[in-house]
Simulated scan of single mutants.
Amino acid sequence: MTHSNTTGKASPRRFRHATMRDFPQMQKIYAHARALMAASGNPTQWGHEFPRESVILDDIANQRTMLLVDECNGRERILAQFALCPGQDPTYATIDGAWLDDDSYVTIHRIASSGLVRHAARDCIKWALKHYGNVRADTHPNNKAMQHVLESSGFARCGLIQLLDRPTDTTRIAYQRHEW
């Protein structure tokens, strides 16, 4: 996965777990993602504060956050980040539609690109599929970019789910891909 960029020669992309040292840069990437979503007609999915600091720190502490990184001019860069959550997701227990199956799965949550390179989110999704095989995700109806990434990555649109962790703006489109 070596990709060219405009800021110098980059090393191949690789994945690693986030550490607490990564937290400040991760906060900047989430802020960038929130601004980009708002500018593209999706201001409410993450609003001004999502993901909450406590959630990000918990993801890091529990080894759920994966980073897509490379090196450019001798410095590591975070290209994208996401939480990879194994086990049953309570939000997915009820769906207006149907999941592809009831097999065990992992869920991709809180995916965000730094904007430094193209196709970073797609690379994260491909990595998750390669390593876990059965992957679920969801996104806001206004998040056309993520819908495109998921659908062009072979995910099936399974129906609608309702988030459990907020009082309003709870509808999300649910996706699944199972590598048989």
Rank of each mutant, 00 (worst) to 15 (best):
G87E: 03
G74W: 10
S152Y: 14
K126M: 11
E151A: 10
L67Q: 01
C124H: 12
A156P: 02
G97H: 09
S54T: 15
D96K: 09
Q88Y: 04
A112S: 09
R110K: 03
E71D: 15
I78A: 03
D103E: 15
A121T: 14
Q88D: 09
L160G: 02
D101A: 10
I56H: 01
A112V: 04
G133N: 13
L84S: 00
A137H: 04
C124Q: 12
D101K: 03
D89F: 06
S153I: 06
N143Q: 07
P90N: 05
V106A: 01
Q147P: 11
Q147N: 11
P141W: 08
D101F: 07
P86Y: 00
H148E: 14
V106Q: 01
A83L: 01
L150K: 06
G159H: 07
C85V: 14
A137C: 10
T139D: 03
H148F: 13
L57C: 07
H109Y: 07
S54K: 13
T65I: 00
I56V: 12
A93N: 11
A80W: 06
L116P: 09
C124P: 09
V55S: 10
K130H: 14
F155V: 01
D58M: 04
R75F: 08
G97R: 09
A93I: 10
R136E: 14
L129V: 14
